[in-house]
Each structure stands twice: as C-alpha cells, then as structure tokens.
C-alpha cells in the first residue's frame, strides 16, 4: 500500500475517533441519563433575573426515582414535584436563591478546608435559619460545590438519633432534615459542573463509586445561558 494511502487512512481514523469523542463529550449529560431542568425565572422582564432553586439531598433515592434505589442523590423541585435531575439551566447574570433540604446523616469532610462556605453572597450560609461562616467538618453530610464559580459549601447532616428519619426519597418536610439557604450570582454563560466532595456513596470503596461517579445523583451541570 502506498505511503500516501496509509497516511490518508490514519488521518481518517484519527478524525473519526475525534468526532466520536467530541460527540460523546458534547452529549455527556444526555448520555448520562439526567435530563435538564430549566429553573423558572421570577422576573424575566426586569433585566436582572432572579431564580429560586429548591433541592433535596437524600440518603437513598428510592425505587420511584431510580433503578438504584439505595443510591444517595440530589433531587430538584420541578413544578412542585421532586425529580432526579442534576443538570440545571440558569440565566446568566442572575441572582440564584438556593434552598437545600438535607435528609441525610453526617459523613464528615476529608478536608476541613471545605467547611468554610465561599463563593456565595457574603460567604455565609443560613443553616436552620441561623447564619454561619463554617460548620464542624465532622458534621458534614454533603457539599454543594461549583469549583469553576468558586462556590463551595458543606451541608450539615441530620443527627444520628433524630426521630422520623427519611427512608426512601422523596422525603417529606415532616421527616428530620436540615435547611440550608444561600444566594449566589451567575456570571457569563457557560457550562459548569457541580459535585459533592464528601465521599458519601455507601457501599463503594472509600465512598467514591456509584452515585459519586454518575451524573444524575451527586454530580451535575449548571448550564448558564444568556437571557
């Protein structure tokens, strides 16, 4: 076979592989099984959009929401229903008010650095109605972190001896939970991953398998889009 033909075949194979990899990466979120949720804008006409994002963190997602009922997961409130969607569309240059209801127990942070909330308005969060600038790393249940936006916060867990703990999700407000509130601002449009830094995947080596490695549970994207 002539050298030119060989080179052409190699170039074609490399291009085809590149296209396939690009296709996979660009469709990563869809292939991973998490549909996107467009967070409703409260005042689209005013020029400064405001959105409210309500999230649950649960110890076991349950058979209604997943084929992996025992996996730990984030859920989002979509039209009054708790859904397992972790890809969220947000408007650019918006104020995002986040409320997290955590129904899970504490796992502890591996690195206490993440115990200090940062990247949100005032670098403070409200925990059960009280402002805090850090939590005890041993009390952390999960984190919500968007590294590219500098957002990191640790979510305190439900006490081990709390009554009426939630079993399978979706959990009810009557179940024992912690409420965390904070506000951050989106900037320019972009595609930002978010994740949990606590190794909270029970039953996996060092707590880092399964739901920690799968979009749709403890990982997702913020799709910040131009208004």
């Amino acid at each position: 076979m002539r050298v030119g033909v060989k080179l052409l075949l190699i170039a074609a194979a490399v291009t085809a592989a590149g296209v396939l990899i690009g296709f996979y990466v660009s469709h990563l979120t869809k292939l991973a099984g998490s549909p996107a949720y467009s967070v409703p804008v409260q005042n689209a006409g005013s020029g400064h959009p405001v959105v409210n994002l309500e999230i649950q963190t649960v110890a076991a997602v349950g058979p209604k929401l997943s084929q992996n009922p025992n996996w730990v997961s984030y859920l989002v409130k979509d039209n009054g229903q708790w859904e397992r969607k972790t890809v969220w569309d947000l408007p650019a240059h918006a104020t995002v008010n986040v409320t997290i209801y955590n129904f899970d127990g504490a796992s502890a942070l591996r690195n206490p650095f993440y115990a200090r909330p940062q990247g949100m308005v005032g670098n403070r969060i409200m925990v059960d109605g009280k402002p805090v600038d850090h939590i005890d790393p041993n009390d952390a249940s999960h984190t919500f972190a968007v590294p590219a936006l500098g957002i990191i916060l640790a979510i305190p867990g439900v006490a081990d001896d709390a009554k009426n703990q939630c079993g399978y999700a979706p959990c009810q407000m009557s179940n024992a939970h912690r409420t965390i509130k904070f506000t951050f601002h989106t900037t320019t449009p972009g595609h930002f991953r978010w994740q949990c830094f606590v190794p909270c995947a029970a039953g996996w080596i060092d707590g880092f398998g399964g739901p920690m490695q799968t979009i749709g549970y403890m990982d997702g994207f913020l799709n910040v889009k131009a208004a």
């Binding site: 110890a59 899970d104 796992s107 591996r110 867990g157 909270c200 029970a202």
Partner: peptide, 9 residues
C-alpha cells in the same frame, strides 16, 4: 491519609 468512611446515611 484518607479518613475512614463514616457515613451514617
């Protein structure tokens, strides 16, 4: 060293 897993959930 990594801390041991202490998940309660």
């Amino acid at each position: 060293l990594p801390a041991p897993e202490r998940r309660a959930g």
